[in-house]
Amino acid sequence: MYLKNINLYTFRNYYKQSVSLQSQKTILLGNNAQGKSNLLEAIELLATLKSHRTRRDQDLISEGEKSSQIIANIERIYGQSELSITFRSSGKRTLMLNHERLHRHLDFLGHINAVEFSCLDLDLVRGSPEIRRTWLDTLLIQLEPIYAHIINQYHKILKQRNSFLKIIRGQFNDQKDSDDLLGAVSQLQLWDEQLSETGTRITRRRNRVIQRLVPLAQRWHKSISGKAELLEINYLSNINIKNEDHQTIQQRFLEKIEQCSAVERNHATTVVGPHRDDVEFNINKKQAKFYSSQGQQRTLVLAIKLAELQLIEDVIGEPPLLLLDDVLAELDHNRQRQLLEVIQGRFQTLITTTHLPNFDTEWLKSSQIIKVEGGKVFQF
């Protein structure tokens, strides 16, 4: 998999910029706030249709403009393709593949795969459960593009069910007659069925991908830490998922909803489901979030990112792109060496940095160096 070029039009701080990638390794050099991360964000959007920096398309559009566009050419084993995303301030997007408009996200996803590693990824360990759920969902979208449809469907059902819980709470508070309440509860049961069905599909996929990721991450973690520490990764579901059977898990889902019905009615919000799940990282049987040093947390995240690269390559049959956003400065010499040794010429890699001395001479000789300044790029 090779990203040949990317063109940005009124995207973030780029007005009109074409970037041709001529080497397996590209170093984006520049001071902070010049647009280096914006370029990586554009590639992330091509791979996942999501940005880890914002949920609003308006933020992706240059100030004073009504739309922005990303166009890229990708070379794969099976041939070449051109991808295009147009963002509008209204939130409506246009997706194009080889100049043909696509009406489903599913048809766009999977044409380019990328793993991003930034200094913000320490939040994967010490941040909120939502950050870990988003990380897991982003990985699954790349491994299985249909997952994007499943997770979007779940959140639509969740939103509708929460709205209905508010209606029921209002009826209880207003002391409506029993027939009205019975009718409302009966309708809620229909949402319960949909939530449990879609939620089970999400939970099983998340748990399976964690199980596939764990041995890869453990292998990398042992290598980086000198085999001195034991890494464990657990998917924490609020439903018992020991039995992988779909029907059994869905039934447990419905039983848990029934158990929490009074709480949900009082708070008018859904408290059961994968939107409340978490991922736990342990080092030597202790939670890394609370008991690990910053160095241990960096090692853990690096091991996870290397495992992601390997898992995506195993599944899709090609190495994905690796995007390193100002991360080398955050790693000590040993971790830098481990990371650069793994990359070599195996993955097309884009690295942002403010200083070239972070790289050894051989790396600089074999890399394309691009200077980024004020939303414009120059060959260094």
Score class of each variant (00 low, 15 high):
2 Y>C: 07
3 L>I: 10
3 L>Q: 10
4 K>V: 11
8 L>I: 06
8 L>K: 10
10 T>F: 14
11 F>G: 12
12 R>V: 04
12 R>Q: 01
19 V>E: 04
21 L>Q: 01
21 L>E: 01
23 S>P: 01
24 Q>N: 11
27 I>G: 02
32 N>W: 01
32 N>A: 02
33 A>W: 11
34 Q>K: 04
35 G>I: 04
38 N>Q: 10
41 E>V: 08
46 L>Y: 05
49 L>M: 12
51 S>M: 04
54 T>I: 03
58 Q>K: 12
59 D>E: 13
65 E>V: 06
65 E>C: 14
66 K>F: 08
67 S>G: 02
70 I>V: 15
72 A>N: 04
76 R>Y: 03
81 S>R: 09
83 L>K: 07
87 F>R: 13
87 F>Q: 13
89 S>L: 06
90 S>I: 02
96 M>S: 12
101 R>M: 11
102 L>Q: 05
108 F>Y: 13
110 G>P: 00
114 A>E: 09
114 A>M: 06
115 V>R: 10
117 F>Q: 05
126 R>I: 14
129 P>Y: 11
132 R>Y: 08
146 I>R: 14
153 Q>W: 08
155 H>F: 11
158 L>Q: 12
161 R>E: 11
165 L>F: 14
167 I>R: 08
168 I>C: 11
168 I>A: 06
170 G>T: 11
173 N>T: 09
174 D>I: 07
179 D>L: 15
180 D>Q: 15
181 L>M: 15
183 G>T: 11
186 S>V: 12
188 L>T: 03
190 L>H: 14
191 W>A: 09
191 W>T: 13
196 S>Y: 03
202 I>T: 07
204 R>M: 03
206 R>L: 02
207 N>D: 12
207 N>F: 08
212 R>E: 14
213 L>F: 05
216 L>H: 03
219 R>Q: 14
220 W>H: 15
221 H>L: 00
221 H>V: 00
224 I>Q: 06
232 E>R: 12
233 I>Y: 07
236 L>S: 11
242 K>R: 06
242 K>L: 06
244 E>F: 02
248 T>S: 13
248 T>P: 05
249 I>S: 00
254 L>G: 04
254 L>I: 09
260 C>V: 01
260 C>M: 11
262 A>F: 04
267 H>S: 08
270 T>L: 08
270 T>Q: 08
272 V>Q: 04
273 G>F: 05
273 G>S: 00
281 F>P: 10
284 N>H: 07
285 K>S: 14
286 K>G: 01
288 A>D: 02
290 F>N: 14
290 F>C: 04
291 Y>P: 00
294 Q>W: 05
295 G>V: 07
295 G>M: 01
297 Q>N: 00
297 Q>M: 01
300 L>A: 05
305 K>R: 14
308 E>T: 06
315 V>Q: 11
320 P>V: 02
322 L>S: 07
325 D>C: 05
340 L>I: 15
343 I>T: 10
347 F>I: 10
350 L>I: 12
359 F>I: 10
361 T>G: 02
362 E>P: 02
369 I>Y: 08
371 K>Y: 07
374 G>I: 00
375 G>I: 01
375 G>C: 03
376 K>P: 00
380 F>M: 08
